[in-house]
Amino acid sequence: MAQFTVFDILRNLLLATQWTVVLSIVSFIGGGLVGMLVLFARISNRGWLRLLGRGYVELFQGTPLLMQLFLAFFGLALFGISVPAWLAAGLALILWTAAFLGEIWRGCVQAVAKGQWEASASLGMGYFQQMQHVILPQALRVAIPPTVGFSVQVVKGTALTSIIGFIELTRAGTVVTNATYQPFLVYGLVALIYFCLCWPLSRASQILERKLNVAHSHH
């Protein structure tokens, strides 16, 4: 049996970590873009669009991410479309992230006082002008801390993609464990790496929250 040093294990895990990072970034950015669409649907003044947005959010918030991954991976295969694991993982995570970000942002937009809509309307601005110049800049300030905070959930969410065979940190942990028979050490290191990814994000969210609160009262 080959001998593995802690360094060997760590090196292999870190190699796989880059895929966790890439998947997290892709999911977060893609989810943010789709989330914008979800946001605009949720706050639209067209009833059917609001309903559509709400249905989307409830569907993705109301089912486990793991099921969504399975459906993206196996479900599309049923229709004869063979989906590589990375694509299914990326797709499912983007759609899942979009549902949560869209809903977080909806709350932030609706937290902007109604008078801001009325004042900008009374000055002759159209809907998108109001959004761009008056509503979103104010909503953004409120939205940044919870958005950064949610990125932690995205990083941890990527761990589930190991189950459909995408090789990222958790999957690498399993592979290395099978080779070394040292599950406690390996998964301990895996957890530590996740922590190193997530903790700075949580901290950033807290610091931003404090900073933006201060900025709001003093500029």
Binding site: L123, M125, V134, Q138
Partner: peptide, 26 residues
């Protein structure tokens, strides 16, 4: 034009910017 009980100035913009915004945008 309309003036409101609660002023409804845009809090993220200076007084000058408040007056400039709709001129520029609209």
């Amino acid at each position: 034009g309309m003036i409101f009980q609660q002023f409804n100035l845009f809090p993220h913009l200076t007084a000058g910017r408040n007056v400039m915004l709709s001129q520029m945008v609209v």
